[in-house]
């Protein structure tokens, strides 16, 4: 499912310097498996997830996801790849504020071919029922609690029956009770759908749930990268 070897991602720093944002010598995840990705802030967890989702181009090294060599794909091909194979759960939910819970889940299906148009409403409603939100279908994100919003995001991530779900600090904006609930749902639904799951977190409570973990180390090029990563929208 995921094969990463000697992956590095560099950014252009101030004054033309090159800054190493991510160094992942080896990472391997099979179909239907789950894994936690840990590491301190600035170690490149989000950068790695973005690369695996095809949102960022890898720098050097090898990256194969769901059988696709992401380095050789055009941007349009990576867009299609993302809609077909990847589900994504963000730290800040990232629901579209103008759409209802149901429409947010359907929005993910609009860009892929996994679900035929006539079946999308039913599929979205079923997924929201699975995360316990069958009574919130018409609510907008602003009318939902943080925990409910993240549950919508979990339902959305599975809309296209993805082979791989990437979750970036999915509990960081939630209290303990909701964190446990969201993680439980995420793992159960991925298991039901046969989707592999990679969860990036630095929360020990989350990490303890995953028997298999991969730790990213702080890239060592002598440059502080917290600020740099933040400047690139990465944590």
């Amino acid at each position: 499912m995921i094969q990463v070897k000697n992956l590095e991602k560099w950014y252009q720093g101030p004054g033309g310097t090159r800054v190493l944002a991510l160094s992942a010598p080896l990472l391997d995840l099979g179909a239907g498996e789950e894994m936690a990705l840990s590491g301190p802030s600035g170690s490149g967890k989000t950068t790695l997830l973005h690369i695996l989702a095809g949102l960022l181009l890898p720098g050097s090294g090898q990256v194969r996801v769901c059988g696709h060599d992401l380095r050789r794909m055009t941007e349009a091909a990576r867009d299609r790849f993302r809609s077909a194979f990847i589900g994504y759960v963000f730290q800040r939910f990232n629901l579209l504020p103008g759409l209802s819970a149901l429409e947010n889940v359907m929005a993910a299906m609009a860009f892929g071919n996994a679900v035929p148009p006539l079946g999308r409403t039913q599929r979205a409603a079923e997924l929201l029922a699975l995360v316990g939100l069958e009574h919130r279908l018409r609510h907008r994100p602003g009318q939902l609690s943080s925990g409910e919003q993240q549950r919508v995001a979990v339902a959305r991530s599975l809309a296209n029956r993805p082979s791989l779900v990437l979750a970036d600090e999915p509990t960081a904006s939630l209290d303990t009770v909701n964190s446990r609930l969201v993680l439980k749902l995420l793992r159960e639904l991925c298991h039901q759908h046969g989707s592999a799951l990679l969860v990036a977190s630095h929360d020990p409570l989350v990490l303890d749930l995953f028997p298999r973990q991969h730790q990213l180390r702080q890239p060592d090029d002598g440059v502080r990268r917290d600020d740099l990563a933040a400047a690139h929208g990465l944590a």
Partner: peptide, 8 residues
Amino acid sequence: ILRALGAS
């Protein structure tokens, strides 16, 4: 977000 969901 739309792009992350697969929008071209």
